[in-house]
Amino acid sequence: MSFLSYLIRGISLGSVYSIIALGYTMVYGIAKMLNFAHGDIIMIGGYVIFTIMSTIGLPPFVAVLVGIVLCTLLGVTIERIAYKPLRSASSLAVLITAIGVSYFLQNFALLIFGADAKSFTSVIKLSPLELAGGKLTISGETLVTIPLCIIIMVFLSVFVKKTKVGRGMIAVSENKEAAILMGVNVNRTIAITFAIGSALAAVASALMFSAYPALSTTSGAMPGIKAFVAAVFGGIGSIPGAMIGGILLGIIEILSRAYISSQLADAIVFLVLILVLLVKPTGILGKKIQEKV
C-alpha cells in the first residue's frame, strides 16, 4: 500500500512540474527561447498569495486569483522590457538576459519580502481522503492538483488546436515568416504565450507551496529547473510532452526519495534526463514530423 501512496504523491508532484513545464515548452516553441526566469515567477506568485492570505487576511480564492493576475502581468512585462528588444539578437544574448531576469527577480523579492523563509498556508482546505480502512491517505492538495492538471492540459490542447489564436501559435512556432505572411502578429502571439505560461506558473505556485510550504526567494529555482528538465524529457515544444515528462519526473523523484535515498533523489532525476537524451535526443514526444520535399 505504501508504494501506491508514493506513486500518487509522485503523480501529484509531477502534475505541478507539468503545469510549470507547459510554460517553458510553449514559450520555447513559439519564441524559440528558454525563459530561465520562469521558475522565479512561481516564487513571486508564492509571495503574492502568501502576503494576501496571511498578511492581509483575504480568503485563499481571492489570493490565488490576484496571484494569477499579477504573475500574468509580470510575465508579459518581462517579455516586453527584457526579451522583445532582443527579437533579432543571438539566442545566447537572450539566454543570458533570461538568467539576468531570474537573478533580478530573486533579489527584488529579497528586498521586498526579506531573507527569512516564510511558511506558506495551504490554499486548499479539502480534508484528506482515507481509503482501504485508513491504510491509504490521499491529501487534499493531491485531490485538487491531479484533476486540475488534467483540466489544464485538455483545455490548452483544445485551445491550441481549435482556436484561431492557437493555430496562429502553431504557425509561428513552425514558420515565423510564413505566419507573418498569413497576417499573424508575431509580437502579440509571443505576448499571449508569456501570459498563458505565467498564469500557469501562478497556479503551479499555489499548488506547490500548499504541498511544500517552505517559501524563500530561491524556492522557485529548483522546481523551475526540474520543470525545464520535464519539458526536455517529454520533448520540448510539445504540450502533451510537457505533461508526460512532468508526471514521470515527479514519480521518479518521489520513488527515489522513498526507496533509494532522499539525498540522491535530485541526482537520479537528472541522471534519468541524461539517459533519455542519450537514447532519444528529441525527448519522449519530441517533434520529428515527416516532411516530403
Partner: peptide
C-alpha cells in the same frame, strides 16, 4: 504548415 492539416492551413490563409 506541416503540423497543421490541409484544412487548417487553408484557414490560416483567411487569418485576417
Amino acid at each position: 504548415f506541416s503540423q497543421l492539416t490541409v484544412y487548417e492551413n487553408l484557414l490560416m490563409g483567411a487569418y485576417t
